[in-house]
Design a protein around this nucleic acid. Structure first.
Lengths: 127, 127
DNA sequence: TTATTATAGACTCATAATATCCATAATTAG
DNA sequence: CTAATTATGGATATTATGAGTCTATAATAA
């Protein structure tokens, strides 16, 4: 029952991008990877998923790197988690007994609260 | 980010035991496994952990089986989850930057809410 | 053109969840 | 006492997934 390490990296990378916003233009993966103490090739892979969802912007070539998009303040922690780990579900009932299952329902309640908790946190608040 | 299938089995087994409480004395694993459509040897293994925590009582021998302990109404969904999956944590920060890490703190908040959600649900409410 | 930077795919490795099988211990019925 | 029934524990197999590496390719600035 854990958020993946990949999401951990992604959140910290986002936090670093946010912290450097306005000061620096683009941050190359090398630098981010150095900060996070992870290989740059692996971090690239993770960040590529954020790029695909437009939560960060990638610029190839010399002096390129990653930067925040215009609407970055709307991005939530939930968005990042889903981009990396996929849709967030606590439970998949092994038994196909319909909606009347109380266990299933309880899990979905707790899950909904958790999702709310992550949605109401903007990445802006991570620094 | 999921509760294990083992916990799913355990919760459903508990729910069935609760539902039969008062009506039937002891339920052999064969019967429970039949209900849950899982092999009885595997379910045994899972239920053994509940026995160890005294969330259910096992009786060997003919006419034996599993039953609820005297204080079964105090058992929460949280108890069952922890008995099977171990202590429930959403996040283990890969980076050892102390308590001041906002990401870590956010995760722990959401985690605490989730734990609360599971703790306040008694197994009695599962049926 | 060359150096720099991101992207994409194939691949490996370790670990954990899921599960089976069998031998053993406990208990009851007859 | 014996036989049948039931749970427990250990060894093992299988599979899925997360974590990470490596390399080739594409894009861009100087």
């Amino acid at each position: 029952m854990k958020v993946s390490k990949g999401t951990d990296y992604a959140l910290h990378a986002m936090a670093y991008l946010v912290s450097q916003n306005g000061k620096r233009d683009k941050l190359p993966v090398q630098e981010l990877a150095g900060k996070l103490d992870v290989s740059s090739t692996y971090l690239s892979k993770i960040l590529a998923r954020l790029v695909k969802q437009k939560y960060i912007v990638a610029t190839s070539g010399a002096k390129g790197g990653y930067s925040l998009p215009a609407d970055w303040e709307d991005i939530s922690v939930y968005d990042i988690i889903v981009a990396i780990d996929g849709e967030l579900t606590l439970f998949e009932d092994s038994f196909n007994h319909g909606d009347e299952c109380k266990i299933q329902r309880l899990m979905m309640e707790v899950e909904a609260d958790m999702i709310e908790g992550f949605k109401k946190k903007s990445v802006e608040e991570l620094i």
